[in-house]
Amino acid sequence: MTNLAEVTRKRVSKIHAGELSSATWVTAALFLILALFIIMNPAEFGTASNLSNIALDASILLVLAVGGTYVLITGGVDLSIGSVLVFSSVAGAKVMQHFGGAGGDAVIGGLAAALVAGAGWGFINGFVITRMRVAPLVVTLGTLGMALGFALMWAGGNDLQGVPPNLVYRFGLGNILPGIPAVATVAAFVALVAGVVLAWTKFGRYTYAIGSNSESSKRAGIAVDRHLIKVYMLGGLLAGLAGFLSLARFGTTSIAGHNLDNMNALTGVIIGGTSLYGGVGKVFGTVIGTLIPAVLQNGFVIAGLPPYWQQVAVGAVLIFAVYLDRARRDAELS
């Protein structure tokens, strides 16, 4: 008995050590990249306004990636989030147009429509995955096409406008405090709440437990299917919120611009140390993982390097992050 307890304790401490080193590595990488760019272009890169722009650039993707973190921790994946974002922004824009494209009604109605639409797609994903036993990869690949198809049909293949100008100018383009963009503040708040929930609540513990071992979670009395539906709904809800934020920022649905959102969000989640095998991950890591591509994008333009190098660099960081995950698992098994 003592032996078993000993092994379990050792294993747990190793997992924590692995996680720590992975998150630490990636955070260190972010600071290293920041430092390099600041040294190369101190007058342009390191300014408060430029850093605030980087935060804004990463924020909508961060909202998507936070949902993706939960889903990946359960051992699943959600490829549909970019299309759900587009669908939700079309739903939001339609409701805003209904309210005449101005005023509080349009803003609240548009937000509600986007959130409901997003959560609705999340429910469909979760329901089909758990009750019809279709693999998450397949289900969300299907809803990826469906959500975009329906969005285009609804919008008539055309980008919709009619977003209240005040929402764009005061919120989408605006700052809450000087230098702190409103949209980035919302994203930071979402990440904070989601991080706390994941780390310290029953909901978070169930999420980890299902990702570590779905069968034993069931035996331990967790309603696994219901919990999974909730997690996919959370992912959809956040994609809906991202759709609303995108509307607020650009004043248009920009339908064609979200084909790679799912892959970009997934990249951020994986760079941040969340395991593709489930059971391991932290929202803090996702924040860092989403910031790295945004910093590289901005920094490469300022450094005057060919834009293609940014993709090369992000790819390399991604592989390195997964290598760390692999190494951690090997250490755990040895």
Binding site: N41, E44, F45, T47, S49, N50, N53, I54, D57, I60, L61, S246, R249, F250, T252, S254, A256, G257, H258, N259, L260, A294, Q297, N298, G299, V301, I302, G304, P307
Partner: peptide, 21 residues
């Protein structure tokens, strides 16, 4: 030339960086 993948967020991001530079 700077590339945006025809994504408004990326287009905004590279424009902001170009303005900083």
């Amino acid at each position: 030339v700077q590339y945006s993948k025809q994504d408004a967020t990326t287009a905004a991001s590279v424009t902001a960086a170009a303005l900083a530079k």
